[in-house]
């Protein structure tokens, strides 16, 4: 395999970081099939914990204290606050979302799989560049996975027609981007991360409010009813 030749026997650290990344990708796939509001939110929490773990592991490996902070902030905001805000605002935490998929689950999984594959191969040159450009790059290794996560999140938003899954899709999209930034953008100015987190909080509140408004208006979490405006 031509692409595979750049692998220079990855260290255990690299493997673990990549494995967490793969875990994030797998939770993304699981979100495609989650049937309950609560399970969707829980999946997001698991996914965010994995992101925090990646940040922590990369921070330890690179001795980068900024990443410790990113890890801690990720954990507090994404695992605790954002889910709490969403659940508080929704107050219907066992709503059934199973009707919101626009096709059968296996088809969705295969579509998402193809998307992920595209993401993988888009990420390859990137990864090669980052490896060649900066010597061994533990985290840069995971770029293809990060891009796959972003694309699968897109697929999730498109294939699920309910507000919860779409919001979960957006937030997990953001998780993918966070992973990407951890992967390639080392020594990113800390203010960037803080601002992004702040933004995430605002977004969570607004998404929550809009979901609640939607739920009040339509008595459903599905977005199938949103077909009034066209042309």
């Amino acid at each position: 395999m031509a692409v595979a030749t750049v692998v220079s026997s990855p260290s255990a650290f690299t493997s673990i970081v990549t494995l967490f990344g793969v875990g994030v990708l797998v939770t993304e796939f699981l979100m495609l099939r989650a049937h309950l509001l609560r399970s969707q939110v829980r999946l997001y929490m698991v996914q965010s914990s994995l992101v925090a773990a990646v940040a922590l592991a990369t921070g330890i490996e690179q001795g980068n204290s900024g990443l410790y902070a990113v890890s801690a902030l990720s954990f507090i905001i994404k695992v605790v606050i954002v889910p709490m805000v969403i659940l508080r605002l929704m107050r219907v935490d066992s709503a059934d979302l199973s009707q919101s998929a626009i096709m059968k689950l296996p088809s969705m999984l295969y579509i998402a799989l193809v998307t992920a594959a595209c993401g993988f191969f888009i990420g390859v040159p990137f990864r090669t560049a980052s490896v060649i450009g900066r010597g061994t790059a533990t985290a840069g290794n995971a770029v293809p996975i990060d891009i796959a996560i972003v694309l699968v999140a897109f697929t999730l938003i498109v294939l699920r027609r309910d507000v919860i899954s779409q919001v979960a899709g957006f937030f997990s999209l953001e998780n993918g981007i966070t992973l990407f930034s951890i992967s390639v953008a080392r020594n990113m100015p800390f203010i960037t991360d803080v601002a992004t987190f702040f933004d995430l909080l605002v977004a969570a509140v607004v998404f929550g409010l809009l979901m609640r408004l939607h739920h009040m208006k339509t008595r459903t979490l599905s977005t199938h009813v949103l077909d009034r405006l066209k042309g």
């Binding site: 957006f170 999209l173 981007i177 977004a203 809009l210 208006k217 339509t218 009034r228 405006l229």
Partner: peptide, 16 residues
């Protein structure tokens, strides 16, 4: 509310 939802989801995806 429909317009707001479409707007926030599409625009947020784009901004992602």
């Amino acid at each position: 509310s429909e317009a707001a939802w479409k707007y926030v989801i599409i625009a947020s995806m784009g901004l992602g």
